[in-house]
C-alpha cells in the first residue's frame, strides 16, 4: 500500500511492435498537491508519461497506481479521466462548433450527475478565468490566450484531483505564457490540486516546485 497520489513502477511503453521505446522502465512517485514540471528533449517520453499518468493509454509493461489502485485494471480509464483528471493541451483542442461556455460543459456532459447545472458551473469557471464576457463566443472569435483559458476552465469542470498540462504555453506569446502560468499556479495553490506540466520552456519549468527531467525514457539523475 502506498500513500502517494501516483506511484509509477517500471513503466515501459513501446510503439511500432517494440521498435520505438518511448519509456524504458521509469519509476516515479508523485504526492497529492505537488506542482511538477516534466522536462526533457523532444522524443524523450515526456508526453507519453503524461498520457499514461492521465489514463489516455496503457503501458506496455509496468504500472501506474493512483491512490494505490492500478489504472486500467483496478480503475476504469474512462471513469478515471472523467472524475480525477483534467487535461490541458498545447493546441487547446476546443470544439469549433461550440461556444466557450459549451466547451466548458463537455466533460460534465460525459459524467451525468442529476440536479447539476452545467451551464451555471461553466459560467462560474469562465468568470474565474476572466472570460465572463466571452462565454458566448466561438473559439475562432477568441485570442490564443483566451482559448487556453477556456481550455483550463474545461479541465476544471469536473473538479479533478490532477491537472495535466502538455506544453500549455507552447502556442502563446510571453505575456499570455506568464498569465497562463500564473493562473495554473493560482489554481494549484487555491484548490490543493496536483499540477503536472510537460514543458520545453525553462521559465515554465522553474515555476514548478519540483522538476523531473526525462531522457531516453527514464528519469534523469
Amino acid at each position: 500500500m502506498t500513500s502517494s497520489l501516483f506511484e509509477v513502477r517500471s513503466l515501459c511503453k513501446s510503439y511500432d511492435e517494440g521498435r520505438i521505446e518511448a519509456l524504458r522502465g521509469l519509476d516515479l512517485s508523485i504526492e497529492a498537491g505537488e506542482s511538477i514540471a516534466i522536462t526533457g528533449p523532444s522524443g524523450s517520453g515526456k508526453s507519453t508519461l503524461l498520457h499514461l499518468l492521465g489514463g489516455l493509454d496503457l503501458p506496455t509493461s509496468g504500472e501506474v497506481l493512483f491512490n494505490g489502485a492500478r489504472l486500467g485494471s483496478d480503475v476504469d480509464l474512462d471513469t478515471f479521466r472523467s472524475r480525477h483528471v483534467g487535461f490541458i493541451f498545447q493546441a487547446f483542442h476546443l470544439m469549433p462548433t461550440l461556444r466557450a461556455i459549451e466547451n466548458v460543459q463537455l466533460p460534465m456532459l460525459g459524467w451525468s450527475r442529476g440536479g447539476f447545472n452545467r451551464a451555471e458551473r461553466a459560467g462560474e469557471l469562465l468568470k474565474e478565468m476572466g472570460l465572463e464576457e466571452r462565454a458566448g463566443h466561438y473559439p475562432n472569435q477568441l485570442s490564443a490566450g483566451e482559448r487556453q483559458r477556456v481550455a483550463i476552465a474545461r479541465a476544471l469542470a469536473n473538479d479533478p484531483d490532477v491537472l495535466l498540462a502538455d506544453e500549455p504555453t507552447g502556442n502563446l506569446d510571453s505575456v499570455n505564457t506568464a498569465r497562463i502560468m500564473e493562473i495554473l499556479a493560482g489554481i494549484q495553490k487555491a484548490r490543493g490540486m496536483t499540477l503536472i506540466v510537460v514543458t520545453h520552456e525553462n521559465d515554465v519549468a522553474h515555476a514548478a516546485a519540483r522538476q523531473i527531467r526525462i531522457r531516453d525514457g527514464r528519469v534523469e539523475g
Partner: peptide, 16 residues
C-alpha cells in the same frame, strides 16, 4: 477523429 479523441480525453466513455 481528433475531436473524438478530445471527448475521450475529457472522460467520455466509448458507449457515449
Amino acid at each position: 477523429t481528433r475531436e473524438i479523441g478530445i471527448l475521450r480525453a475529457l472522460g467520455w466513455k466509448r458507449s457515449q
